[in-house]
Design a protein around this nucleic acid. Sequence first.
DNA 1: GTCTATAATCCGATAGAC
DNA 2: GTCTATCGGATTATAGAC
Lengths: 212, 212
Amino acid sequence: MLQAGNGGPSRQAARPRSSTRARILRTSLDLFAQRGFDGTDIVDIEEAVGLTPGSGGFYRHFRNKEDVLHSALETEIARVQEHYRTLQKRPPSDAPDAAIADRVNVMLEMLWEMRHLMAVIAHDNTRFPELVPQIAVAMADSGVAIDLAALEQAMDDGAIPRRPAHVVATIMMMAGVGYTLADMLFGRPVADIDRAEFGTVLTALVVGSPSK
Amino acid sequence: MLQAGNGGPSRQAARPRSSTRARILRTSLDLFAQRGFDGTDIVDIEEAVGLTPGSGGFYRHFRNKEDVLHSALETEIARVQEHYRTLQKRPPSDAPDAAIADRVNVMLEMLWEMRHLMAVIAHDNTRFPELVPQIAVAMADSGVAIDLAALEQAMDDGAIPRRPAHVVATIMMMAGVGYTLADMLFGRPVADIDRAEFGTVLTALVVGSPSK
DNA sequence: GTCTATAATCCGATAGAC
DNA sequence: GTCTATCGGATTATAGAC
């Protein structure tokens, strides 16, 4: 488990830059997400954080490459969950029928926050199979899963057309996942549709409103 | 380019089993899709096709590992395109408003056919960046892209609610992509929703019908 | 904490016999 | 077409000086 919120070496005096260990964590996650675990070598990491490439400097901070992978993922999952908590403190919009829109927007924003985690899974799901359920659960717990009860309530109220709620929820999630992955893959939004527009139309499809 | 449809050595006499070269092509694609390019070594391929592991037998059929990757992708793209041609010969269903449903079903079936291509991209998009547009174009040309003109026509006819057609088309595609990738990743349909049900509800969302 | 070596391993690729 | 044997390069990881 992670050392709980980076309790940090408060003993250390002035230290303006982040610690080497912290920089390795950040950099490794970026590199793993971009190139995959095997595609990233220790030398790349050392170079990126300012250690002499080829020196074993890395090993003063982590036991081996798998160690830094697991630590980086734990740190990132904690960061994402913290982001979700922050997001939930925002007041819900007061527009009529905005409940669904709010949920869609939260989902899309959280998926974007999780893009590094998704990229690692996309690259290395077979190399590290145990990561798949671990990250999937963390994603579901952090605003990516659509609340079924809320969806069914909206159908009961007649606010949105009645359809199999679990299928609608899955379609919403999968659309978000596909959109986010494609964005990462091509380096820009699919068909140049930005997140706000994607969310607006996805909401409209679910709500069934006749357009504006 | 590929030798066009496997024109094949018609000189050879009876050869009940597929050639070693053909088996390497199939096996390599499976392994690359599962484990990625770097995660698959020559020994794995040799073993899987019945050559002695560790012998250089592989190199009698391909110059190197990249050679077999490119050949396998070309072969697979040709197979997928052929599958699409076959699919288009099916008579369209005659149910009312079935135009959209037909397109959704074709898209989902073709995405499933392309799952190996998608997996290779997911694993190795940064290692072989030139593959990304190449495969993306092949996918778009083979029934994954939703025909914008048809969608706008349906809106003009009042058959489906008017919304930004390119955004609706993108949502449909991304939902299909997410659904297919998740299926591959977890080894079974997301939330145990099968393709037919996913397609039915996705169609309903786009058509805006009040459910059945 | 960081560096200079260097050990150990793995893997792609080749030469040449059969 | 397939095998034995092996070279050479790349990469993880360690030992020990500074």
